[in-house]
Each structure stands twice: as C-alpha cells, then as structure tokens.
C-alpha cells in the first residue's frame, strides 16, 4: 500500500495530530513501508478461520451493581491543565458531537 500525502493528512486529522509538512512527507514513506510489510498477513489463506481477540477464552466478566466510592472532591480536576468551578475548561468547541 502506497499512501499519498493527502492520505497522510486525512489520517492525521482523524488522529488529531497537527503534523508539520516535513512530518507528513516522512510519514508518507515510513507508513508505506510499514504497511507493505504488515500487509503480508494478506498472503495467509485464512478462509473461515475466526479472528482471535484474546488468546485466553473468557466471557461474561460482570460486576454487581454496587456503588463504590468515587474520587474525593476536587481530585478529578486536580490533574487538569485548566479547570474552573470544579469543571474541566476547554477552548471553544467548533464541532458538535
């Protein structure tokens, strides 16, 4: 797989990375190389082989609906780069979810 610089820019936007032009160019070559290597998985005939997410087969690990203590007051925002009135402060939001 060979990526264009536009592909790299698109992926960088999806990944929320403000990359410089030099980084875009470097990544174009590196990602193409790495993906070419990774694409070797396509050589394997996997037919109806199921995918494995976890090697050890576990299922239904469930937690009882019992409250546990939350963090102490103000601990949540103690790590925040910017907080106001116990809330995390962020610049203006352009996109709506």
């Amino acid at each position: 797989m060979s990526l264009s610089t536009d592909d790299v820019r698109h992926v960088a936007r999806l990944a929320r990375l403000a990359l410089g032009d030099d980084e875009i160019v470097a990544l174009q070559a590196q990602l193409s190389d790495i993906l070419a290597y990774a694409e070797k998985v396509g050589e394997v005939a996997t037919g109806d082989v199921p995918p494995t997410g976890h090697a050890y087969p576990l299922a239904d690990v469930l937690r009882d609906d019992e409250p546990r203590p939350s963090l102490p007051p103000d601990a949540a925002v103690a790590t925040a780069p910017q907080a106001e009135d116990g809330r995390f402060r962020v610049p203006r939001i352009v996109d709506e979810a």
């Binding site: 106001e84 009135d85 116990g86 809330r87 995390f88 402060r89 962020v90 610049p91 203006r92 939001i93 709506e96």
Partner: peptide, 10 residues
C-alpha cells in the same frame, strides 16, 4: 455552543 467563549466539562 455557537458563539461560546469556552466550555466547561462535567
């Protein structure tokens, strides 16, 4: 959200 100066998240 439109025209806000900034936002606070809870």
């Amino acid at each position: 959200i439109h025209g806000a100066d900034y936002s606070l998240v809870d």
